[in-house]
Design a binder for these strands. Sequence first.
RNA 1: GGCGCUAUCGUCUAGGGGUUAGGACGUGAGAUUCUCAAUCUUAAAACACGGGUUCGAUUCCCGUUAGCGCUACCA
Length: 497
Amino acid sequence: MPEENASPATTPRVRFAPSPTGFLHVGSARTFIFNWLYARHNHGTIIFRLDDTDVERNTEASVQSIFEGLRWLGLNWDEEYKQSERLDLHRRAAWAIFDKGLAYRDFAPAHAAEGEASSAQGAWLFNPGMRELGREESDRRAAAGEPFALRYRVPRGDGRVVQFDDGVYGAMSKAADEIEDFALLRSDGNPTYHLSSCVDDGDLRITQIIRGQDHLTNTFKHILIFEGLGAAPPQFAHLPLLVAPDGAKLSKRKHGAVVSVTTYRDAGFVPEAFINFLCLLGWSPKNDLEFMPVAQLVQLFTLEGVNRSNAVVNFSEETPFDPKAVHLNGEHLRALEVDDLSARLQPFLERAGMQAAPEKLREVTPLIRERIKLMGEAPAAADFFFVQELAPYDAAELIPPKGADAAMTLRVLKTAQEVLAGVAEWNHGSLEHAMRDAAAGLGLKAGPMFQPIRVAVCGRKNAPPLFETMTVLGRDVCLERIGRAEAKLGALGSQSA
RNA sequence: GGCGCUAUCGUCUAGGGGUUAGGACGUGAGAUUCUCAAUCUUAAAACACGGGUUCGAUUCCCGUUAGCGCUACCA
């Protein structure tokens, strides 16, 4: 405790409260990131709270996948709670509200999943008769064992307007007459989400609730609950939603794996880039900055920069990730230290079945870093550095375009082989010198001279710069591969003859 | 249906009563170059519609339309 009487009002306490009913969703991840950024920017506290009151739908696998996703993001939290361990507190709070006369027992059976039919008639507000049930009769029926739900007695007919000032959406208000008598306790005695959430937010002294806009209209109910609890509500700030290109909200069923955070991890996004990308969806520093490391995001993040309209994550079947996310990832990749990137690349190569010695990968990394945007592309970009034998390629690729023929190509290869065998120092400088001299000797420009060698050595036309590549590969491998290319070329010649 | 929220290039966004409506991604063209990238330059590309208010609206107000959310003893 550095300061004994630090004013609690000046120390924000925010929370991220996921329900473990599936993997960590990108929308949830963004909510967490915004909360984290808010806490760190304001030197406050961020709390992780597992909102696991729905025993039917909760799974342990989901809990694990949420932690897995968050661990990957690398953003820590300061306190951790589980709602299922706090149910007694929630129940007591519900009965306290009941004792004040602000809630009542509803003995009507639960609504069947009726759907459109009745909702088309108008808003459902309460079950007739239950609100007015006398206390004695209510107590008697409860004592007789009749099941009931506990509902909030929303003020009616007195023109009450519920209002709050949203940190993003501004002044919000709604007539209480439009709000239904929502449940606090289910007929099995368990608290509902609304109750648990508010009781915990109060008990954990949350000062700012930053959450998805899908809770905007729920907030009116929450204000009422805080009122019933006799506690001042925290400040609310709602975030615009993330939606798919078709405008629908991101769902696993409709949109597949793109909605899961681990999909980004597995494709080779670095968390810094993923965080950066998510921040750009619905928030802006308002100064044209786009590439931002986490430290800078912390410095720049404010609720004023959050906008109010939904943002679409622009993916499709052909491009499974938003092109902007991919681009940002490329930038972050290039911003990493070579050692760092190299270490991160390692598992991707191993997973592709390549034996990548760390020292060698360290040399290869600078050659591929600006040729990949996702770490998952590394194996394809660097394969020829690590395989024993090149994948089969078309011998015709060896022959440069523009009038060159197999005979000339063969001459290039043979010359290269001789020159390379004789180069005193196997390094970039002398290799380039030697090869350019050789090209001049053959009366060739660099392009036609280098392509056959590149293809021979890398097995394809597009690759990193030749001499850096050959330096890393080493003399023996280069000579051997050029020799094989000559043989291929010979076979091609005899075939067409 | 009711209630709430939203509306600037294809996408993410800046802006705001008078601007050539800015940036980024993506796309096209060019430069550089041993290929591919990276990098740089450059082009095309937007204020949903209709009414007000005003000397003047993309900006403010109202309406329409569209989209989204909530409308459960889910969260």
